Amino acid sequence: MTGEETEGEGHGSRAFPRRRVLRTLGGISLVGIGGTGSASARGPPKGTGNGGPPNGNGGRPPDHAGGPPDDERGPPQSDDEDRTIEWGGQGSEHAEQDCPEQDGCWYWVLTPGGPEEFEEVNELEVTYEDGDTETYDEWVQRGNGAYQIEVCKNDGGTVEDAFVDVTGGGRNALLTISDGECKGPVYWQVDFGLGLSPPEVPKYEPEDFLMAAVGNSDRVSFNPSCTFPKEDKIDLLDREFDFDDEDNPTHVSVRFEVVSDEELDLHLAVFIRPPRDLTEEFDVKEVEEAAKDGECPIDADDVDVEEQVEFGVASGTFGSGEQHTLEIDLPTP
Rank of each mutant, 00 (worst) to 15 (best):
residue 179 D to W: 15
residue 262 E to C: 11
residue 262 E to G: 10
residue 182 C to T: 06
residue 50 N to G: 12
residue 316 G to T: 05
residue 129 E to S: 13
residue 27 G to M: 10
residue 65 A to Y: 07
residue 29 S to T: 13
residue 206 P to S: 13
residue 75 P to V: 13
residue 67 G to Y: 00
residue 226 C to I: 00
residue 30 L to T: 13
residue 301 D to R: 15
residue 160 E to N: 09
residue 96 E to D: 10
residue 17 P to C: 11
residue 138 E to I: 14
residue 137 D to P: 10
residue 10 G to F: 06
residue 174 L to P: 00
residue 79 D to R: 12
residue 313 V to Q: 06
residue 248 N to R: 15
residue 166 V to Y: 00
residue 270 V to L: 03
residue 333 P to W: 03
residue 263 E to W: 10
residue 310 E to R: 13
residue 92 S to V: 06
residue 244 D to A: 04
residue 47 G to E: 07
residue 160 E to C: 02
residue 322 E to Y: 13
residue 118 F to P: 00
residue 301 D to H: 10
residue 13 S to A: 14
residue 249 P to L: 04
residue 68 P to M: 09
residue 112 P to V: 01
residue 308 Q to G: 12
residue 89 G to E: 01
residue 142 R to M: 11
residue 47 G to M: 04
residue 133 T to E: 08
residue 41 A to Y: 11
residue 98 D to M: 07
residue 218 D to K: 08
residue 277 D to A: 05
residue 119 E to N: 11
residue 306 E to Q: 08
residue 43 G to N: 12
residue 30 L to A: 12
residue 38 S to R: 11
residue 255 R to A: 10
residue 75 P to G: 11
residue 135 T to Q: 14
residue 257 E to P: 03
residue 188 W to E: 08
residue 237 L to E: 06
residue 180 G to C: 08
residue 55 N to E: 15
residue 133 T to A: 12
residue 42 R to G: 12
residue 79 D to I: 12
residue 22 L to M: 12
residue 227 T to L: 04
residue 167 T to E: 14
residue 150 E to R: 11
residue 138 E to V: 14
residue 190 V to G: 06
residue 289 E to R: 10
residue 8 G to T: 05
residue 172 N to V: 07
residue 241 F to C: 00
residue 292 K to F: 05
residue 215 G to L: 00
residue 307 E to C: 03
residue 104 G to M: 02
residue 59 G to Y: 01
residue 287 V to I: 05
residue 92 S to D: 10
residue 172 N to Q: 14
residue 242 D to P: 03
residue 246 E to R: 13
residue 281 E to P: 03
residue 48 T to G: 07
residue 219 R to P: 06
residue 12 G to L: 09
residue 25 L to R: 15
residue 122 N to T: 10
residue 22 L to H: 12
residue 277 D to F: 04
residue 150 E to P: 09
residue 165 D to I: 08
residue 296 C to T: 04
residue 201 V to D: 05
residue 185 P to I: 03
residue 49 G to I: 01
residue 181 E to M: 11
residue 112 P to Y: 04
residue 134 E to H: 14
residue 132 D to M: 09
residue 43 G to K: 13
residue 97 Q to Y: 03
residue 48 T to Q: 10
residue 57 N to G: 08
residue 120 E to D: 14
residue 79 D to V: 13
residue 138 E to S: 12
residue 59 G to P: 03
residue 177 I to K: 02
residue 122 N to A: 11
residue 259 V to Y: 04
residue 8 G to L: 08
residue 330 L to T: 00
residue 313 V to S: 06
residue 232 D to I: 00
residue 192 F to D: 01
residue 271 F to A: 04
residue 164 V to D: 03
residue 242 D to K: 15
residue 178 S to I: 08
residue 85 I to H: 03
residue 142 R to I: 14
residue 303 V to I: 14
residue 313 V to C: 06
residue 183 K to C: 11
residue 170 G to F: 06
residue 107 Y to E: 10
residue 258 V to W: 02
residue 262 E to V: 09
residue 174 L to T: 13
residue 229 P to K: 02
residue 53 P to I: 01
residue 77 Q to S: 12
residue 141 Q to Y: 03
residue 201 V to G: 07
residue 69 P to C: 01
residue 193 G to L: 02
residue 178 S to C: 11
residue 14 R to T: 14
residue 288 E to R: 06
residue 271 F to Q: 00
residue 39 A to W: 09
residue 31 V to H: 14
residue 295 E to D: 09
